[in-house]
């Protein structure tokens, strides 16, 4: 039986089909985004304590960071 690897453990090679260059005038490397852009496209790996709900925690995060919109990656109840 073929060994099944979880998606994060699959070993992949990056194949080069063609060469190309990217224009430094547009966009940013993710880590180099200016702060407002960094936050606009930011994600938090949050160690949520068992008390509050995911919704409550997300609301709290929105308030602390100062953004009007955020989503979370599913409650424990859902798979």
């Amino acid at each position: 039986m073929k060994e099944l690897k979880p998606p994060w453990a699959v070993e992949r090679e990056l194949l080069v089909k063609a060469e190309g260059e990217t224009d430094p005038r547009y966009g940013y490397k993710p880590e180099e985004r200016p702060l407002s852009e960094y936050i606009r496209l930011g994600a938090i790996n949050l160690d949520k304590p068992p008390g509050p709900t995911s919704h409550e925690v997300t609301t709290w995060v929105k308030r602390i960071v100062g953004v009007d919109k955020a989503g979370h990656g599913g409650t424990l109840g859902a798979p």
Partner: peptide, 23 residues
């Protein structure tokens, strides 16, 4: 643990919903 995606990053959550998990 819980991934929280801010503003436009929330558009990417569909990938996370589909992703493998570990418990």
């Amino acid at each position: 643990m819980l991934p929280v995606a801010l503003k436009d990053a929330a558009k990417a959550l569909m990938a996370v919903l589909n992703a493998g998990k570990e418990y």
